[in-house]
């Protein structure tokens, strides 16, 4: 199958889905914005009919201002040589309660890895994903750390101590009337 054919086919396919917005960013990059309800159908079509067989990644972006998570499914077609990024937004919910979405594991097997990662880091529960359990943060009981409302630097400052150096040269300067003037934590930009 030729690239052009696939592209033409893709355009026809995309027109079948409701409320879809397609942006061609460059020769090999397509951005698609799609409602959360239509995304699985889109991926199904992409994989089944348009040769986008490789799920490169699922990225999650937290937008607390909009009370939403953005999920981005990056799909690659070996034949069309084109990367399609499907963007969708789901409600965010509070940190105590998980946000929910459906797994696309039945379409793309690699999704399991990314879904588990997003579940762990952002607290988005994917229904019917095979491994919704801890993986990287085995011993972490705090909130999902990649959420914007988790302040990692504050956590580190509360949990760990700064090294307390007091070498001879510093003691000499202190005797002279000088000493530490600006600590690094005072001026983080």
């Amino acid at each position: 199958m030729k690239c052009d054919e696939i592209n033409a086919w893709l355009d026809a396919l995309l027109s079948e889905i409701n409320e879809i917005e397609v942006t061609r960013k460059s020769e090999r990059r397509v951005r698609v914005d799609v409602p959360a309800s239509s995304l699985p159908a889109l991926l199904e079509l992409l994989k089944g009919k348009a040769s986008y067989v490789h799920l490169s990644a699922i990225s999650c972006v937290d937008w607390p201002g909009d009370e939403e998570f953005e999920l981005v499914y990056h799909c690659w077609s070996y034949e069309a040589k084109s990367l399609l990024s499907a963007h969708t937004r789901i409600p965010r919910n509070s940190a105590e309660e998980f946000a929910h979405y459906v797994s696309v594991y039945d379409i793309y097997k690699p999704a399991a890895f990314f879904e588990r990662d997003i579940y762990e880091m952002f607290g988005v529960y994917f229904e019917s994903s095979p491994y919704m359990e801890k993986f990287i943060l085995t011993e972490w009981n705090g909130p999902p750390p990649m959420r914007k409302d988790f302040d990692a630097e504050a956590y580190v400052n509360d949990t760990f101590n700064w090294a307390d150096y007091h070498p001879q040269w510093l003691q000499d300067i202190e005797e002279e009337g000088g000493g530490i003037a600006i600590r690094p934590e005072d001026i983080r930009l």
Binding site: I173, E176, G177, G178, I180, A181, I182, P184, L189
Partner: peptide, 28 residues
């Protein structure tokens, strides 16, 4: 100190060095 991405730099005041605000020199 501001660009240091690991917060590894502390500014130390050294009294015997020149402090000349008009010419933009501090003894840090």
């Amino acid at each position: 100190q501001k660009i240091c991405d690991n917060a590894a730099i502390t500014m130390v005041k050294i009294p015997h060095l020149k402090e000349d605000p008009v010419n933009g020199i501090r003894n840090l």
